[in-house]
């Protein structure tokens, strides 16, 4: 279908897609723990919750910078249209992330102001997640672009759909956070996460179903892609897998099988992203800008790919190593950085 188009922009699409996916999973569970913070029972429980992500959160967040800067270099049009179009939710997200970050650093260093840092952590996480969901919804809903610039108005992003995706992402990240806590903690904290997982998974499934119905209903091209034959035969595997995974997670929660819950939640998220790619490829700023329209020139993209080819594997190895090193359960006794 697109075989006569240059390949380099597609490679870049994959690279940045990978960085975005890494961000959503890794910072997703970190933010999720912040969202679950208000449901904790005690200060020591909050210590554990925060401790379970403490050594890795900063690295998790840097994927967002890598994705953002990569967009600027490889797809300047995406960078230059999405950012102004979703200006207010993006600024809100950045400010919320600053609060969240500062809370991470100082909560453990302070007893007197701890409640304030607790509030900044939970509030920052909820607001940043909601804003990210709104951004996602705003992009999926489509941006009015003309001559490679955003041509809409200030509140174009504010639609029932984007508010819905905002709320949905809060539940989504919370479920990732709960999945993480099930793996990383035990006892009361783990129990709290187990209890949260069933309603959260249900809500996540519901949200995915609503988005899956909403997008083809409002966009005939997407409906055409999913429901025309023969596409419908092999694409229907995506929703089937989603339902199977969700049911599986339910059984795992009931049986308290902790090992694979988080992995399955991650797979659920990945299926959601794959669904979006199926719906929109090759459009990167729906409904009008394709990845080839948005790409920087071959000279820029090849100059930049050299850097990514060197750095990305090193970062991945380091990331994997950090997670390996911090494997196992977080216990009150091994929180010695406090």
């Amino acid at each position: 279908m697109f075989t006569d188009m240059p390949i380099l922009p597609v490679i870049w699409f994959a690279v940045i897609g990978f960085a975005v996916a890494m961000y959503i999973i890794l910072d997703g569970f970190s933010l999720g723990i912040g969202i679950l913070f208000p449901f904790s029972k005690s200060d020591s429980q909050r210590d554990l919750m925060m401790g379970s992500v403490m050594p890795v959160w900063d690295g998790n967040q840097t994927w967002m910078i890598l994705a953002g800067a990569g967009l600027y270099g490889a797809f300047p049009v995406v960078y230059a249209t999405i950012l102004p179009a979703l200006y207010l939710p993006l600024v809100l997200m950045l400010l919320a992330l600053i609060f969240r970050g500062i809370a991470f650093e100082f909560r453990g260093k302070s007893r007197k102001y701890r409640h304030m840092f607790d509030l900044a952590f939970a509030g920052g996480s909820v607001v940043a997640t909601f804003a990210q969901g709104v951004v996602l919804g705003g992009i999926v809903h489509g941006l009015h672009v003309s001559d490679y610039q955003f041509a809409g108005s200030t509140f174009d992003w504010l639609t029932p759909f984007s508010l819905f995706t905002g709320i949905a992402l809060v539940f989504g990240y919370a479920s990732l956070g709960a999945g993480w806590l099930v793996v990383k903690t035990e006892g009361e904290t783990q129990n709290l996460a187990y209890k949260a997982l069933r309603p959260l998974t249900l809500l996540l499934l519901l949200a995915m179903a609503i988005i899956s119905a909403w997008t083809p209903l409002s966009n005939s091209a997407i409906a055409e892609r999913w429901f025309s034959t023969p596409n419908v035969y092999y694409l229907s595997i995506v929703p089937v897998l989603v339902v199977l995974l969700a049911v599986n997670i339910f059984f795992d929660v009931t049986a308290r099988r902790e090992k694979l819950i988080f992995t399955k939640l991650v797979m659920l998220f990945m299926l959601g992203l794959i669904g979006l790619v199926i719906s929109f490829f090759p459009y990167v700023v729906p409904p009008s800008v394709t990845l080839w329209d948005a790409a920087s020139g071959p000279s820029s993209q090849s100059f930049l790919i050299v850097g990514y080819a060197v750095i990305l594997p090193i970062v991945l190895i380091y990331t994997a190593y950090s997670y390996y090193v911090f494997r196992g359960k977080v216990k009150p006794g091994n929180l010695h950085h406090y």
Binding site: A69, G70, Y72, G73, A74, P76, V77, Y79, A80, T81, L83, Y148, Q149, S296, G297, S299, S300, F303, L304, G307
Partner: peptide
Amino acid sequence: AQRGGDITGVLLT
């Protein structure tokens, strides 16, 4: 960003 991104975006990245 859009008109200069081919150069400045790459450098920033």
